[in-house]
Amino acid sequence: MDTKKYVIKQISVFSENRPGRLAAIAHALGEENVNILAFSIAEADGFGVVRALVDHPEKAKKKLVALGFNVAFTDVIAVRMKDKPGGLYEIAKLLGDANINIEYSYAYSGKEGAVLILRVDQVDDAIKKISAFGVQLIESSVFH
């Protein structure tokens, strides 16, 4: 199967852990008319990583780099979950049984149900397993 169309380009931004940094990033994206569809903040010792799915990743990166931010792209996948008890378990177990590691994940509950964003160590395998199981993956074209 063609797994490529399910690979979504996530933008990650290195940020100092202090007030106003998220605002600076969000402001920059707003200025460029870039829409943030989903995002999360991971924090570590004194710094954080802001991760987001945006509708125009290249435009977002260009703008942020110009402002001096450290920016990277990472491949993630998005899974439509059953918005009911046990929905997350189904997917987590599926990947665990296939020995695919989830490095990090975040979720949002949209108009058409819950969506789980996953960063896994074997993207192609994860896409194949999830599809074969009958769970719906969201194509990257939906985001950008």
Binding site: Q10, S12, F14, A42, A44, D45, F47, V49, R51, V65, N70, V71, A72, F73, T74, E103
Partner: peptide, 18 residues
């Protein structure tokens, strides 16, 4: 300062640099 280009999205990588 974390040099441009040495950021990889992975927290563990950054912790390793630190």
């Amino acid at each position: 300062e974390l040099a441009p280009g040495s950021f990889s999205d992975k927290i563990t990588d950054i912790m390793h640099i630190k």
